[in-house]
Design a protein around this nucleic acid. Structure first.
Ligand code: NAD
Ligand code: NAD
Lengths: 229, 229
DNA sequence: TTGTTAATGTGATAACTATCACGATAGCCG
DNA sequence: CGGCTATCGTGATAGTTATCACATTAACAA
């Protein structure tokens, strides 16, 4: 496949990440070779979708046979840049930050937590995991620079999210994963992704109230005005 | 707008959830009225997109003026079913489960944690928050039924995710939010949403390695075969 | 070597989603 | 009360993503 300046769907990238997981599980179950059908069954994506997703990046299978399980996982990791280590810092060691720092899955998949920061004096200096201690927020820029962290994770309250993002950018990170519910602004050359757990729940609530709630009103003009101004 | 059997884009629902947040912030900042432009600026969505999203559900604005901030937030909550309380249970009170149970935002936005479950005897009976105690996993079906929980949150290790989902379904939940990295199967009438934090990070890694990595190879046939079988 | 088989890779097509451009209209002011 | 202005609501259009269908081809067996 030619690799011109083809636009790759964002959804494809998201799926590739899940393929890795499924492939690792299938590999553990003893499948040395998987067809797009088996992989699709395993991660709930249509076989055609899988083949299309992969076709953006090259040819990884053998016609009439399938894909080498280990090999394909390896190739996808390379595509996603997970063959390299990504030094990562986290800001805001509260409930969620603590959970993320203790999530071993990350370090097993290409990310290395190199530092954590908080502004609560009571937390400074504590070891969260064996290799990460909590630094004062004032040292964020310095340490982030020093460690050449490429990714920053924001788990501070919404009110501090923007200033935290600014500091991370100053520290030189190129990507930010933001768990605070408000969007933050970053320069052009920094990538930001927002994780909105609440939106996911809300989505669920919407689907449930549509299916199990009272009947939907049909063909009725629904106008709901704001109070007179 | 007529409300026939129009298909509403999933992306619209996701955005509606974020609009609520932005509206609440703008309201707190003193804006009694917002235009689609201001709201769009605030939550980084185009004004046209916002108007289109809303138009699926009715007319909520005043031409030449804008939307009543409080009113619009209220209306969107009604659309998403957040005007009702959703009794919710959580299974697996580890690092992540603990963080979610302590996330006050949920209860302020229509969700009520009615019970938590774990299979670790050491955790049973402990109070996680003032109103939630940890029950043994064996009582899941019974208590979930009793409390009429509509939503279940899965924060157990991947290996236990499927059996947990099965129990939740047996307990009568109609929607599941799954944080385990593997997809689980549920009956037709139950809605499942997967939250993949790792995928989000991987997405970031992909974008970064594309932008900041070595030059992309262009127009070269990239074939990477699995080892000879 | 050649035919058979199974599963890939991909162009064409359908479905979905976002953007645009503008007509409609509420409020305001003279 | 009529014209002006700001902003909504929406049909038309462009762009994006998923699905389909099948030609292609590696492996294997005879
Ligand atoms: N807890 C969850 O399950 C959950 C889920 C989704 C989103 N979030 C979001 O994640 C963020 C953190 O949530 P949490 O529950 O962990 O909150 P938390 O209050 O437990 O933790 C916040 C931490 O950030 C620190 N902090 C505050 N201001 C800071 C600053 N300016 N610089 C550095 N550190 C600072 C605090 O000391 C605290 O340790 C919030 O924005 C929340 O909305 C949380
Ligand atoms: N920690 C994170 O930041 C994070 C992020 C993304 C996804 N996840 C996923 O969330 C899940 C939980 O992660 P964690 O870090 O909280 O793990 P954890 O080990 O801290 O917690 C798991 C909890 O589940 C309980 N448990 C195990 N099997 C159970 C069963 N069969 N029934 C009931 N309870 C059971 C354990 O006793 C434990 O309390 C995992 O699937 C993980 O991949 C975690």
């Amino acid at each position: 496949m030619k690799q011109k300046e083809i636009k790759i769907p964002e959804a494809t990238i998201k799926r590739l990440s899940t393929y890795i997981n499924c492939l690792e599980r299938l590999d553990a179950e003893g499948f040395q070779v998987v067809s797009s059908e088996l992989l699709g069954e395993s991660c709930q994506v249509s076989p055609a979708q899988i083949r299309k997703d992969l076709s953006y990046f090259g040819e990884f299978g053998v016609r009439g046979v399938g894909y080498g399980t280990k090999n394909l996982a390896e190739q996808i990791k390379k595509i996603l840049g997970l063959d390299k280590i990504w030094p990562t810092v986290l800001v805001g060691v509260g409930h969620l930050g603590h959970a993320l720092l203790n999530f071993t899955f990350f370090r097993e998949h290409g990310y290395r937590m190199v530092a954590a920061f908080d502004n609560d004096p009571g937390k400074i200096g504590r070891e969260v995991t064996t290799d990460v201690i909590i630094h004062p927020i004032e040292k964020l820029v310095e340490i982030t620079r020093e460690e050449r962290a490429a990714i920053g994770i924001i788990t501070v309250p919404a009110s501090s999210a923007q200033e935290t993002a600014d500091r991370l950018v100053e520290g030189g990170v190129k990507g930010i994963l933001n768990f605070a519910p408000n969007k933050v602004k970053v320069p052009e050359n920094v990538t930001i992704r927002n994780v909105s757990i609440v939106s996911e729940l809300d989505n669920l609530a919407y689907l449930l109230s549509k299916k199990h709630g009272r009947r939907r009103l049909t063909r009725k003009k629904t106008i709901s005005r704001p109070p007179k101004l």
